[in-house]
């Protein structure tokens, strides 16, 4: 009978080389980035009075102002709904083109996915700034921004849904000689429709949040009023806008969460 060997640890494990190297690297990155950004903890506390003053002024909301912002708030929701719908409509063909179980041409699939990856890298406010330059100040720029922003997001979510469908029903229908349309109607759609709607609502939630700040750059909605109140240092109005936005976002989130639970 042989004696079992005591497991030996290499020197890398014994001296925790990996952990120390990673910690050191993180520390170096922390120090360099705090020097690059000019972080000064003392300054924050010495100027804390000013920050507190801002908060105090925000804590007296000007409730009369609420009447003024009802319309732009509704406009924000309308922008989000329209933008998400347009984006999702364009996303469907691209999602089909990049689903690996439907399109077997690897080159075509790679090309569409690369295009979608590129679209997704662009932050929403950046798109808004460009489209305000193209379409002028107003909600058109906002709708186009949200459409492109949601197109990138929805198409990725959609093709991931398509890739997870059960191929059984498709094969069953193919084996009895069904046409392509029949296959899509009876085998593909029932499997993906609920998840599509669920992801659509999820994107709508994100777009409602995004659309509240798009107006800051002139792309319509409540953001225009936010920018105005901030540049006039009228913080009691800012507070009303933020509170109203919060309420709208929470209501939309609640409705959308409820619908998604019913669907799935």
């Amino acid at each position: 009978m042989s004696i079992p060997k005591v497991p030996r640890r290499s020197w890398i494990q014994r001296w925790h080389v990996k952990g120390i190297v990673v910690t050191g690297l993180l520390l170096i990155l922390l120090v360099t980035s705090s020097r690059m950004t000019g972080v000064d903890v003392g300054m924050f506390f010495s100027n804390f009075g000013q920050f507190l003053n801002l908060l105090v002024r925000m804590s007296h909301p000007d409730w009369q102002y609420a009447n003024v912002i009802v319309r732009p708030l509704l406009e924000t929701i309308q922008m989000a709904i329209l933008g998400t719908t347009i984006g999702a409509a364009f996303a469907v063909p691209f999602a089909v083109l990049s689903a690996s179980n439907l399109i077997h041409n690897r080159f075509l699939r790679g090309l569409t996915r690369l295009f979608l990856d590129l679209v997704r890298t662009l932050p929403d406010l950046l798109l808004a700034a460009i489209f305000v330059a193209v379409f002028g100040i107003g909600s058109t720029a906002g709708v186009v921004t949200l459409a492109i922003f949601s197109f990138g997001m929805v198409s990725k979510l959609f093709y991931e849904v398509i890739e997870t469908i059960d191929m059984g029903p498709l094969e069953a229908l193919t084996s009895v000689g069904a046409s392509k349309v029949t296959i899509i109607w009876y085998a593909v759609l029932p499997q993906i429709l609920n998840q599509f709607v669920s992801y659509f609502l999820y994107t709508l939630e994100i777009n409602v949040r995004a659309s509240t700040v798009l107006g800051y750059l002139g792309a319509g909605g409540i953001g225009v009023f936010l920018q105005r109140s901030l540049s006039e240092f009228n913080y009691s109005q800012t507070a009303v806008i933020i509170l109203a936005t919060l309420a709208v976002v929470l209501v939309i989130d609640g409705v959308s969460n409820h619908l998604r639970r019913v669907l799935l």
Binding site: M36, T37, G38, V39, M43, N47, Q50, V213
Partner: peptide
Amino acid sequence: RTFPEIVLAIMFIKAVGPGSY
């Protein structure tokens, strides 16, 4: 999560001045 990041940035600019801080 719902408080807009842009507004937060503007508030901190009042406190510590414009810049990456």
